[in-house]
Amino acid sequence: MLETAPLAQGMSARRGAARRKPLRTAIVHSMLFAASVLMLYPLLWMLSASFKPQDEIFSGSLFPSSVSLDAYVRGWNGLSVSFGTFFMNSLVIAALSIIGNLAACSLTAFAFSRLQFVGRRLWFGVMLVTMMLPYHVTLIPQYVLFFNLGWVNTILPLVVPKFLAADGFFIFLMVQFFRSIPFELQEAAMIDGCGPWQIYFNIMLPLSKPVLATAAIFTFIFTWDDFFGPLVYLSDVRNYTVALGLRTFVDSQGLSDWSAVFAMSCLVIVPVFLVFVFFQRFLIEGIATSGLKR
C-alpha cells in the first residue's frame, strides 16, 4: 500500500542539494542563529536572572557574576506545598488530557471529514461555534454543573471534557489534516470490504502521526499553561497545578523575590520543552505520508 521508494529518493535528493551548496547552508544557519538569539534574548535574560543574587538582577550584564542555585531552592519551597507536588499534579492532568483529546477528537474528526451522515455540516458548524463563546461567561453555569456532579476539587472537571472532545480546536485541526489524506486509499479499502472502524484504525490513524503529534504537543502545552480551570476547580493547595502554583507564588509574595520567580518560571518550561523535543520525531515521521501512491 505504501510505496517508500520515492520517499527515499526525495530525501536523498534534497539532502544532496544541501550538500552541494555549502554556502547556502551556511547562510541559512547563520540567519537562523541570529534570529534565535534575537528571539531568545528575553528568555536568556530570565535564565541568567534566576542564577543572580537579588540586587544584581536589573544591573545590566547578561552574565551573572556568580552562579547560585539558591533561588531554585527558595522557589521550589515557595508555598506551603512544594512545587514537586504541583509538577506531579500537572503531569497527571496533562497525560490524561492527551489520551482523551487524541482518542475523542480523532473519532469526531474522522466522522466530520470522512463519513457521510445527515446533519454533518450543521454539527460541524455547531462545533465551531462552541469555540467562539468566551469561557468566562460559561464558567459559573459550568461550575454549578460540576459542583452538583460532586466533581469540584477533583481533576475530573479538567479531564473528563477532554474525553468528550470538548475542545473544538483539536477536532478542527484533525479535520483539516484528515481531509488532505487522499480519498483513493479509503475507497480502495472499502472495496476490500473494510468498514469505517478499520479505515479509522488502519488507514487514518497511522497516516496521521504528524497531526496526532501536533495535537499531543498542544494538549500538553495548553493544559500545562492553563491556570483558570485549575484556579476554579482545584481549591486545595495540594491539588494545584504548576501554572496555578506559580501564579499563587508570584501573586502572593514572590515579587519580593524576583530570582525565585524567574527560577520557577524557567523550571516550569522544562517539561513542556522536553515533550516538544520528544514528539518532534513524530512530526518528522510525517514524511512517510509523502511516499503515498497518489
Partner: peptide, 25 residues
C-alpha cells in the same frame, strides 16, 4: 479544617465563582 489560599487577584475570581455556585468556604 480544609484550607485554601491564593494571591489577591485570583482569590476574588475563585471566591465569587464558588459563592455563586453555592460552594463558598
Amino acid at each position: 479544617v480544609e484550607t485554601e489560599y491564593l494571591g489577591w487577584g485570583d482569590y476574588w475570581a475563585r471566591l465569587s465563582t464558588q459563592t455563586s455556585g453555592g460552594n463558598s468556604p
